[in-house]
Design a protein around this nucleic acid. Sequence first.
DNA 1: CATGCGTGGTT
DNA 2: TAACCAAGCAT
Length: 353
Amino acid sequence: MRDMPASDLSALLLAWYDRNARVMPWRVPPEQKMAGVRPDPYRVWLSEVMLQQTTVAAVRAYFLRFTERWPTVADLAAAEDAEVMGEWAGLGYYARARNLLACARAVVRDHGGVFPATREGLLGLPGIGPYTAAAIAAIAHDEAAVVVDGNVERVMARLWRVEAPLPGAKAELTRLAGLLTPEDRPGDHAQAVMDLGATICTPRNPACGICPWRGACRAEAEGVQASLPRKAAKAAKPVREGVLWIARRADGAWLVERRAERGLLGGMLGFAGSGWDGGGGDAPLSLPWQEIGEVRHTFTHFHLVLRVLVGRAGMEAVPERGMFLPGDAFRPADLPTVMRKAHDLAKGALSPP
DNA sequence: CATGCGTGGTT
DNA sequence: TAACCAAGCAT
């Protein structure tokens, strides 16, 4: 059992997957697959990009809204930037949304509206890296690509008891994942390892008692599974501070600005702010601003505290930054979360005149 | 190869 | 509750 051939391990896993595969909107159910139905590369791609560093629970609703609104890659490619950024609002890592659009347009412009079918061809597209290219090639086209995400890293580290810490151990874990990748059903294999990692071989308290690889797992044999994979310690998050100015005009329009394409919250709608390094900054408009409170929000690598100031502007007001967006065109759901929090705080003080 | 880049759920 | 974590990519 301990030194079972890779093909046997793969067979055990696929048998487990056939009984335990999670149902998701972007997956083709087993019975349809048996009947020859292939996954739509557009839907596979969209789901994989949304799932980058993001939970299945968070993605589900976004995926359904996107596919309802833009059923094909051509539909998405024809969308306005602001529509897509607004629909992505709240999902995070907004560079994904910008790359999503760039990728859709590249597929239409350079590939006749058809996604490249190979890992190699997919790798050249915006927002598609080693993981996503392999996942699409395997799931949508049954290419025996080696799919390595955080789940696979964890499962391999435990199965083979790899003690070396990430990210250094990545190459070795990829090699081990490759040994296990079958020529037959590589897409199901990839999804099976990820389902195993998400439901049984979980980070904290793995359910080794019901694992299809029980008896073959070297970490479990030694009782060290919960401590693998090892990871380098992360740096503490500093606290940054800033000011946010939220103005509303007499007709109900909100003063907003489109953030720069690159960097934090790039391309998203927001309110005018100072820099976020404690330094000052100028208000976007000369008004009798009133401070109403603060918003706290934590990003990937820092905590942010924003003092929120509100002001009422007359119809003649001409802002130095940003623009007044009519009340009926302003949708809080289009805002990234920190801006939505600020809006929640400010809306009471700025209720329509 | 290290860093920047969101968010919400779990422990 | 602060820390950790999730189907990574671009630079």
